[in-house]
Amino acid sequence: MLGSSVVLSPGLNAGSASWLTVVTGLALASPLVWMVIKLTGDYPGKTLVELNDVILGPLWGKIFSIMYLWYFFHLGAIVLRDFGDFMSTIMPTTPTSVFLLVTTALVAYLAKSGIEGIVRYSLIIVFFSFILLGLVFILVSNNLNLSSLLPVNSISAWQFLKASYEVTVFPFGEIIVYAMIIKYTNNYQKIKRSVITALILTCIFGSLFNIYVITGLGNYLEIPTYPGYAVIRRVDIFGIITRIDIGGATADLALGVLKASVMLYAVVLGISQILKLPTYTSIVLPVGTLMFLLSLIQFDSSVENFFFHETTYPYYAAFFQAFLPALTLSIDGFKKFLTRKTDKAAA
């Protein structure tokens, strides 16, 4: 989750108050998180696909599952594309497809190694990324100007809410993918704790990151395509340590691969559960290829991608992140209510 938020820095439209939008975004996301925890907690040991079947019956369950899987699949493709665009900006003459292809290969490899591999990979990557970003932070600290955080209320409440909402759907709302992979953590309390820690960590990191971008750029914040990258581009220490862009890009890439492979893993796991395949590893490659193709053809230019993030995505994502789980949950509640009633009637 950290990954693409680092590249795209959500909520930065809110100007100097952006770092606050991360916090409010988390607050807005809390119902979504609650739904995820509730769903997985009520049906321990079941993935999203399985519990859809239980709650909604085999037909509607499948339809819902396929919608979710499409979302994960698309999200993975979006993440890939974000990185492809980013890399292409740094290395302009290399075709985006090359970056996408290579990255997808890696993502598929990681997804194939299963949830254990993903978790172990993430442990090391998050550790190294934090170190790397910490180092970068130290290097840019010279350029940070804390007064850029003022004034806090430079934008209207409506704009602020809108920016917060953007943060809610991206990245916090994406927590729904947890419902797909969470069955591998066996303890309900543990799930709750891990989900909440993950969110809070993301929140802290996100706000810190936004603070760092705001203070690092000041008014300049308005113009760069990748603000986080622009901060790093400013680093110049005695003319010796300059252009450490690569360091930042590395951390981005590692985290992005993680996110995309979680999505891919969720998709292939879901498909294998729907089709009752004995193992998911066999479909990683075909699905990965499709993901690569989708990421390649979905946008003609990075500007299109940018517009998609700005305008369409918030509503698009809300459908999967809020509407579908809410519907599932209320049907579940209704069914339980009914059974209780009939139980009572029977009694």
């Binding site: 290579v102 490899y109 254990e116 591999g117 172990r120 590692a254």
Partner: peptide, 20 residues
């Protein structure tokens, strides 16, 4: 072939491999 991007991809692939 790909500069630092290639190196990073290579290292990450090794890491994924080691993790599995």
């Amino acid at each position: 072939a790909l500069g630092a991007f290639g190196i990073v991809i290579g290292l990450l692939a090794v890491l994924v491999h080691l993790a599995s």
